[in-house]
Design a protein around this nucleic acid. Structure first.
Lengths: 317, 317
DNA sequence: TACATTTGCATAACTAGTTATATAATTAAT
DNA sequence: ATTAATTATATAACTAGTTATGCAAATGTA
C-alpha cells in the first residue's frame, strides 16, 4: 500500500488491521481447502481444549487473550456444531467445564496436518523476508507491555513541549502573572495570608531588592509558571524557594521541573550551598516534584505561614 | 502471550488481531490526550482528504484499502461532526465529492504535531526492537500480493501429500481398481468402447503379455491412480501411454504428474525413444498435464477410439 | 438512438470482536 | 449465621469493519 508510505507510522493501527483481514480471510479458505467444517475464529478456543482436556470458559479467555463473553459465544457455537460438550459438572456450580466430543477429537486429528502445512507456508514467507513478522509481533507484545503506546506518545509530547518552554528573569510586566498564578493555587487549597499579599503585590521590594530572584516560564511567549528565590536571614540557608506556581492549563509540560532546576542553578550561581522550602503535604504532585528535584525533609525552622506542614532542603553541589 | 509460543505460526491471524486491538485502543486515548474531538477510524479518510483537497468516496476507499461502504459511513459521520462537506457538485451527478470544512482544516493542523509525536514514539519502539514490525508488514503486504497465503498453504499440502504417494508395478489385485478408475472417467465424458473393455477386463493379456506395463499410484496403500504403457506396432513409437486415471477424491496430490513421470521413466528403461498418446481436448486438466510432462502435439496416426481428437508425443532423453 | 453495461454511492444485513451488566454460586468477614 | 464481596457465566448493546444489493447516472455499442 502506497498510502502507508505517505502517512507514516501513525497509521500502524490501520496497517495492522488490513494485514489481519488479509490473513484471516485466507484462513477461512484454508479450512475449506482441507474439507474441514470449521470456523477460523474457533481455532484458539479449540486448540486450548485439545491441549487442556477440561477447562472453564474464563480460563480459556485468559489463555488466549479474548474477553470472556467472546469465548462464551464461541463455546455455544461449537456446542451447536457438536465439537464440544459440557463435561460432568464440577462441585462449583458456577463453572461450565467443557471438553471435546468424539467428533471434536476427530477434527483435532484431521486439523493437525493442516496446521503443519500452514506453519511451513508461513515459515517459507519468513525465510523469503528480511523482517520477521512473527518475531516482531512477539517483541512488540513485550515492549508494549513494558510501556504502552499511549505512555510513549505522551512522553514524546512532553519532551517536545518542554523544548518550547523558556525560563527567563522576572520583569515588571510579569508582576500580574506572578500574582495571579500564585493567588490561583493558594486560594484554591488554602487562604491567602498577610505574607502572601506583601510578596505578590510588591515583589520588587519584598523579594528582588532584598537580594532574591524570580524566574518566569514562558510557553509560546506567555508566562505560564513562576518561582521565586527569597533571601533568608538564617545561618544555614541563604535562600528559600517559594511562590512556585504553574498554570493548570500548562500542566504536563514539565514546567515545574524546568523552573525548579533553573532556580537551583540560579541559587548556585549566587553562591548558596543549600536552599530551603516550605509546603503542605496535601499538595502531592508538588511534594513529588520536590523529591525529584533532590529536596529532602528537614524539621524545626519557624515559619510565618499557617499552611506549612512540611519543610525541605536541597543541598547544592 | 505464552499461548502463541505453544500454538505455532498458524495462529498468526489471532496474534495480529490482538496486536491490532492493543494499538487501536491506545489510538483512541491518544486523541483524548491531545484534546482533539476525533475518532481513530476517521484517520485514513481524513488524512487523504487533507492531502488531496477534493476526491470521491470510491477513490478514497481504493487509496486507503477500505471497502466503499466503510468510507461511505465514515464520511457521513465526519459530515455530522462538521469536519467535511460535500463540495460543489461536479458534472458527474453520481459522484459525491467531499472536502474538509474550515473546522476540518483547523483540526488537520492541530493533529500534525500529534502525528509527529506518535511517529517518534513508534520509531522509538522500532529502535528498541530487533525485528522491525513496520518493515515486516510492508514486506508481507508485498509477498502475499505475489503469492497469497492460501496458495502457499495449498502448495505445502500438495508437497506433503505427494510424498505419501507411492508408484508401484501392477499386480493382479489392482485389476479391479484399474478397471473402475478408468470406467469412471470414460463413461462420465464419453462412452465405453470395444477396445476399452478388452484392455480393462483383461490387462494381463491385452497389455502386459504384449510387452506393456501398468503402474499404480498408492495413497495410504489404496490404489488411487493408474496408467498404462501399451506396446505399439509402429516404426516411430514403441509405446503408447494410455488408460491414465486418477480418483477424483485424490485430486490435488499431483498423482497424475507422478504417474506420468514414472511411466516416461519406465519407457526409457525399456529402451523407447518416443512415446505417444491420444486424448480429447475437452479434458482440459489432462491436456494441461501432458504439456507439463513435455508432450507435444502430433498429427496423422490412425486410432480405434472415437473420442480421440488430439494426439501427442513425448521425446525421451 | 435505444438498450445494455458499467460506475458511484447508499443502505441493509452480517461478522467478530468489544464493554456493560445481571444473575447465581461461592468465599470472606463480621 | 448472616451479610458483603467476589467469581463464573450469560446476555444485551455497541463497534468497526465486511458483503450483498438496489438505484440512478454515465458510458459503450449495435
Amino acid at each position: 500500500m502506497e498510502f502507508f508510505d505517505k502517512v507514516g507510522k501513525s497509521a500502524l493501527g490501520s496497517r495492522l488491521r488490513l494485514m489481519t483481514a488479509v490473513v484471516t480471510d485466507d484462513a477461512a479458505k484454508i479450512y475449506e481447502l482441507y474439507g474441514v467444517d470449521f470456523v477460523p475464529k474457533w481455532f484458539p478456543v479449540f486448540y486450548t481444549l485439545a491441549e487442556e482436556r477440561e477447562i472453564t470458559i474464563t480460563e480459556i479467555a485468559n489463555e488466549i487473550g479474548h474477553s470472556q463473553p467472546s469465548v462464551s459465544k464461541i463455546i455455544q457455537e461449537m456446542i451447536t456444531a457438536g465439537l464440544i460438550q459440557e463435561s460432568a459438572k464440577t462441585d462449583d456450580k458456577r463453572k461450565n467445564n467443557v471438553v471435546l466430543t468424539e467428533k471434536g477429537t476427530l477434527i483435532s486429528k484431521k486439523i493437525k496436518q493442516q496446521l503443519e502445512d500452514i506453519d511451513l507456508a508461513i515459515e517459507e514467507i519468513i525465510t523469503e523476508s528480511k523482517h520477521n513478522l512473527w518475531a516482531a509481533l512477539e517483541e512488540w507484545e513485550f515492549l508494549l507491555e513494558q510501556k504502552s503506546l499511549i505512555k510513549r506518545v505522551s512522553e514524546q509530547k512532553k519532551k517536545r513541549e518542554s523544548k518550547d518552554v523558556e525560563i527567563v528573569e522576572y520583569k515588571a510586566e510579569y508582576q500580574q502573572a506572578f500574582r495571579e498564578l500564585n493567588v490561583e493555587w493558594i486560594s484554591k487549597y488554602f487562604e491567602m495570608e498577610e505574607a502572601d499579599y506583601k510578596a505578590l503585590d510588591n515583589p520588587e521590594d519584598y523579594i528582588l531588592k532584598k537580594g532574591g530572584k524570580i524566574l518566569v516560564a514562558l510557553y509560546q511567549n506567555e508566562p505560564v509558571g513562576v518561582c521565586a528565590l527569597i533571601k533568608m536571614n538564617n545561618s544555614e540557608y541563604d535562600f528559600e524557594m517559594a511562590k512556585m506556581a504553574v498554570s493548570p492549563k500548562s500542566q504536563g509540560k514539565s514546567i515545574g521541573w524546568l523552573l525548579g532546576k533553573a532556580i537551583a542553578e540560579k541559587a548556585r550561581e549566587l553562591g548558596a550551598k543549600k536552599i530551603y522550602l516550605e509546603s503542605n503535604t496535601i499538595l502531592k504532585p508538588a511534594i513529588n516534584l520536590y523529591y525529584k528535584l533532590g529536596f529532602e525533609k528537614v524539621f524545626g525552622l519557624e515559619t510565618p505561614y499557617k499552611r506549612c506542614n512540611i519543610q525541605m532542603e536541597l543541598v547544592l553541589r
